[in-house]
Amino acid sequence: MTATEVRPTRVSAALAAAPRPRRGPRFLPALLFLVLLAGAWQLMAVLLDSVLVPGVPEIVTELADIVSDGSFLDQLGITVLRVALGFALAFVVAVAVGIAMGRNEFARRFFEPAVLLGLTIPGLVWALLCVIWFGIDLVNPVAAVALSSAPPLMLQIYQGTRSVDPDLLEMAHVYRFSRTTRLRKLWLPALAPSLFAGARLGLSLGWKVIVLVEVFGMSSGVGYQLNNAFAAQNVAAVLAWTLLFAVVMALLEYGILQGLERRTSRWRKAVSV
């Protein structure tokens, strides 16, 4: 082909082959923030000298106790499982409803009030209602997480659906792509950015609600442990459990969400010249 057609390809290929930045510096800023936070906290604890503000060593001791006890993995695991089940339910429903809303005027008008209502109801209310209705069943936390994370997911997916290129849908129509092919090869990849934005928002709401549910109505999980620590006035334990919880969230964000996002947006890298 002509030189003008080959050249841009070579440039992108060279860029794609460029060495990735070293691993260390990527985590350095986050690490720096954490060290400064711990330092500031310790300074505050020393200055206030109160039992209500435990120092970093106390929190670390408490963390070590929780971790060495061995049951903490079970407690974290049960909470993560509840969030995962609730979120998975919300995700499946939200993809179906969100795409329907973006494609069909009736569906949009039908579900719009549900989404708006869902967005305005506080997570605390879902938690209370689910505890009242479902008691200590697994249904309770799963329903609470699903109900609180589905509305923002639906909104994101609905808005993403409207931005999918209608030209591609025409192409899929004339080439007779099956429903499954359209969903897997067109809709989901095209919606990926909205799905990730919605997943982040939905998960963060899910985490908040699950703790409330476990405080009010469960006898296991991180929320239950937090409630125990609160009842014993053990501030260090409250902070330690919160930290462990944050670690799990960070693992999820850095380990799973960002990894998936990189995978699904690999093709974008090819154009970011």
Binding site: D167, L168, E170, M171, Y175, R176, F177, S178, T181, K185, L186, P189, A190, A192, T264, W267
Partner: peptide
């Protein structure tokens, strides 16, 4: 062109073949 940018060039063509 109306290609699916997230699929390889080959996949863009094979997808249409499979559907056909």
């Amino acid at each position: 062109p109306r290609l699916l940018d997230w699929l390889s060039v080959r996949e863009n063509v094979t997808l249409a073949c499979e559907a056909a």
